[in-house]
């Protein structure tokens, strides 16, 4: 069931990408894209997808939009933060690698969380081992696992739990 759902989502994404890249006004493109997307999502030649972990209830869809908004804000903040540090004459950094622990259980949730961490202010995911992530933090303020988790991923984890627990 989960596998089927993952394949269905993959089909929709591939079909959408095809139509955007070609000309959606032509009927030929709809037919050819449909066939290719169907083959690519049904044939067992391609790696298994983790997209089946995605929840598709209305609440989850709103959760996705909320997550996207939070993510864009964090991305802009992170860039301003980097710009500030780069241009500051004293180069205010205090880097270190800290461990955090996530509540997310699905591979997709962890993937999105790790990527979100990398794109938010001053943090890069260096390694993941099960539910523990090791984060390079440009300005370490919390060394304790719990406190660092709260400071780095609190917001994202809450949002991601809604649609891919």
């Amino acid at each position: 069931m989960k596998d089927l759902k993952g394949r269905a989502i993959r089909f929709v994404l591939l079909y959408g990408a095809w139509l955007v890249l070609t000309d959606p006004g032509k009927r030929d493109e709809w037919i050819a894209g449909g066939i290719v997307a169907l083959l690519a999502s049904v044939l067992p030649l391609f790696p298994k997808t983790a997209l089946g972990d995605l929840k598709l209830s209305p609440k989850a869809l709103f959760g996705m939009i909320a997550y996207f908004a939070v993510f864009m804000k964090a991305l802009v903040m992170s860039n301003l933060d980097v710009a500030f540090r780069v241009l500051h004459p004293k180069l205010p950094i205090n880097p270190g690698i800290v461990a955090i622990r996530t509540r997310l259980a699905t591979p997709l949730g962890r993937l999105l969380l790790a990527n979100s961490i990398t794109l938010t202010p001053g943090t890069i995911t260096v390694e993941t081992k099960g539910d523990t992530f090791f984060i390079h933090w440009i300005n370490v303020s919390e060394r304790d696992v719990e406190a660092a988790t709260k400071a780095i991923v609190g917001e994202f984890e809450k949002r991601l739990e809604v649609f891919c627990g």
Binding site: S78, N79, V82, R85, V86, L91, P121, I124, H136
Partner: peptide, 23 residues
């Protein structure tokens, strides 16, 4: 690219090299 030149070590260069280039 300014960050690449100014940051002291590998990881910190990566910090600027990832985020600023994405946006």
């Amino acid at each position: 690219s300014v960050g690449m030149l100014r940051m002291p070590d590998y990881y910190n260069r990566m910090q600027t090299g990832t985020k600023a280039t994405t946006l």
